[in-house]
Design a protein around this nucleic acid. Structure first.
Length: 119
RNA sequence: GACCGCGGACGGAGGGCCGCUCUUCCCGCGAGGGAGGGGAGGAACUUCCGAACUUCAAGGGCAGGGUGCCGGUUCAAAGCCGCUAAGCGGCCAUAGGCCGGGCGGCGGGGGCCAGAUCCCCCGCCGACGGACAGCGCCACAGAGAACAUACCGCCCGCAAGGGUAAGGGUGAAAAGGUGCGGUAAGAGCGCACCGCGCGCCGGGCGACCGGCGCGGCAGGGCAAGCCCCUCCUGAAGCAAGGCCAAACAUGCGCGACGGACUGCCCGUCCGCCCUUCGGGGCAGCGCAGAGUGGGCCGCAUUAGAUAAAUGGUCCUCCAAGUCCCGCAAGGGACCGGACAGAAUUCGGGGUACAGUCCGCGGUCUGGA
RNA sequence: GCGGGCGUAGUUCAAUGGUAGAACGAGAGCUUCCCAAGCUUUAGACGUGGGUUCGAUUCCCAUCGCCCGCU
């Protein structure tokens, strides 16, 4: 298994999966992001991204999702195993490059206590 | 050479590492892994038109929607025809675009002696059928805005009253314009020219134009107000539509096995409960199944996803920008890449766009 | 992807094709010892660009922005 892989197994892809995370009710808000999270039944860490139309045009929305996805890809091993995470950037989110995306994700991880402390 | 306008082309290049998606091959029981190859645009934006395609409906009419000077040209997929097949060749259309022309409006320039009219040239604009089919609306001003008893006037007349529509005035618009005649004053009342309408002739494929003759003009504007006329038009859209398996509400049907057999036949065995012994309920099995949530096809012959890939980072180079040094050629530093991203496909229109290059036109300037 | 609808003061809404109004809000003044309330008064808008018309917020076209619905 590749160290920084990000295949379909790392994404929330079904409506059921999203609903399960929402129903768990764990919501964390940081300066840039809103996130819901829960613990899955297996060890895979999965992420789902939602970007509002108010963020901008298709180019801007894709850019934001790619940055957040890249940040998740590079730092996923620091998350607890089995974490299910849904990230929703706030309107006016100031994440413009990869460094800011990693920073925003780190802040979220610390505030929501999703770090991989056990190992 | 600089600037501006129009049209066209391009719209960063190369590489390393980490990733995504599709596909071919190989390895692996499998999850998966490895190698090779493909992976955004001229607008992918907009959704303003049209076509293919799909389902439904189809007998006609009305309604509704669209269209609106003339000629030519352009146009994809599909369709039709021909050729032995791959494929090639030919033909046809709507919307839209382009080119040219006609007519009208506005503006500018020139010409006939000055001005108006008229004629010629140039530029811009025009959804450019119909106002005797009907309805509606024309604010303010003005006497009057559409069926006209005419405000100031003019003329006849002592007056009452009558005749007038030339002049003044209002307005976007007031019963064709100018001139001459005519008259009590006037008026197409008469005449000439122009305009208008009708007819004939000629030119042009045609819109239309020109000439001749006739008609004194028989009565405002707005149809991108309703409307009438011409021509076109069945409706919806890939979230169309087709298929697959799963779970559940519900409905319908059914004792099981064996033998015989076209079929009513015979034997053996029987989950529970109620029973008025006909049967009923629950369970089981089979079938159907609204809705729900999935998957496949549609969906791609060089993108083909479905919470939706085409990315991140670093290095070198190339434009452009800013600053510094230099008379200049040039050098150095910093910064840094427009608008924007497929979701059935195709064609046209519209809109956005840093910068580079090419062509054409215009203005200014320099040299020969 | 497709189909509908709407853009008017700071906000919420009006207006047969002819002067753009109302309420709340804002500013100023009066009143009060001061504030609130009340009274008087002022400023402020037809998303943008063309076309039709004598004249467009209104009609038509284009463009920009916003909202809703369809699995």
């Amino acid at each position: 298994m590749k160290q920084f892989a990000f295949s379909r197994a790392s994404r929330l892809r079904l409506r059921k999966e999203f609903e399960a995370v929402f129903d768990a009710g764990n919501k964390t808000v940081t300066r840039e992001l809103v996130a819901w999270h829960s613990q899955g039944s297996d060890d895979a860490r999965k992420i789902g991204l939602m970007v509002s139309r108010k963020t901008g045009g298709a180019v801007e929305r894709n850019r934001l999702k790619r940055l957040l996805r890249e940040a998740f890809r590079l730092t996923q091993r620091e998350l607890k195993e089995g974490t299910r995470l849904i990230i929703y950037p706030k309107a006016g989110c100031a994440v413009k490059d990869l460094a800011q995306a990693r920073g925003a994700l780190e802040t979220l991880r610390r505030k929501a206590r999703l770090g991989n402390d056990g190992k």
